[in-house]
């Protein structure tokens, strides 16, 4: 067996403060694909949007409020909601905003729209509304993609246009 290596004499310790610290970073990226089953409630909403091109809400059996987007239970009363009601396609603009576009994304005008027959608001985008017409309370109408391209996603609704 070869002899154990003789350890090198220890260098005198250098205080950390005396070292020049080179800024150094390790880079990483987390790449995980995700797939979220939409379940009974969102799944039904999206399937009807795809198949019928229409928007639906769920009515709470207790407080009678119609939630769009639908929630499996009324968020206030905590009872199951199973009473689907058609809403829209017209509604009222409650809010909008523009934010500088992220790289590779077109500039958007995001909006909250309370559809006729609904008590809560749907988040989506506005399409071609001239800036001088934008106001809270503006009447808008859902623009749904043609049946051939709908795939059961919220983007089957292209957005809202001014009526």
């Amino acid at each position: 067996m070869p002899p154990d290596p003789v350890p090198a004499p220890l260098a005198a310790p250098v205080p950390i403060a005396a070292l020049t610290i080179e800024p150094r970073a390790v880079e990483g990226r987390i790449r995980i694909p995700y797939r979220w089953p939409a379940g009974r409630t969102a799944g039904a909403f999206l399937a009807r949007l795809r198949d019928e091109g229409r928007l639906y809400g769920l009515r709470c059996p207790r407080c009678k409020q119609v939630a769009v987007p639908p929630r499996p239970r009324c968020l206030a009363c905590r009872v199951p909601s199973e009473d689907w009601v058609a809403v829209g396609p017209e509604g009222e603009l409650l809010s909008w905003t523009t934010a500088p576009a992220a790289p590779a994304r077109p500039a958007e005008v995001w909006a909250l729209v309370r559809l006729d027959g609904a008590d809560t608001a749907l988040f989506h985008r506005l399409l071609d509304v001239p800036p001088d017409r934008l106001r809270v309370g503006l009447r808008v109408r859902a623009d749904v993609a043609s049946p051939t391209v709908r795939r059961g996603a919220i983007t089957d609704l292209i957005g809202f246009c001014a009526v």
């Binding site: 969102a42 809010s95 934010a99 988040f123 809270v136």
Partner: peptide
């Protein structure tokens, strides 16, 4: 953001703040 109704549209925290600001001012 809600993965079924909001996230596919690509909002950020700033978008939410903008929507809130408009509602508040309204």
């Amino acid at each position: 953001f809600d993965p079924f109704f909001e996230r596919p549209l690509g909002p950020t925290d700033h978008v939410a703040l903008g929507l809130q600001a408009r509602r508040f001012l309204a």
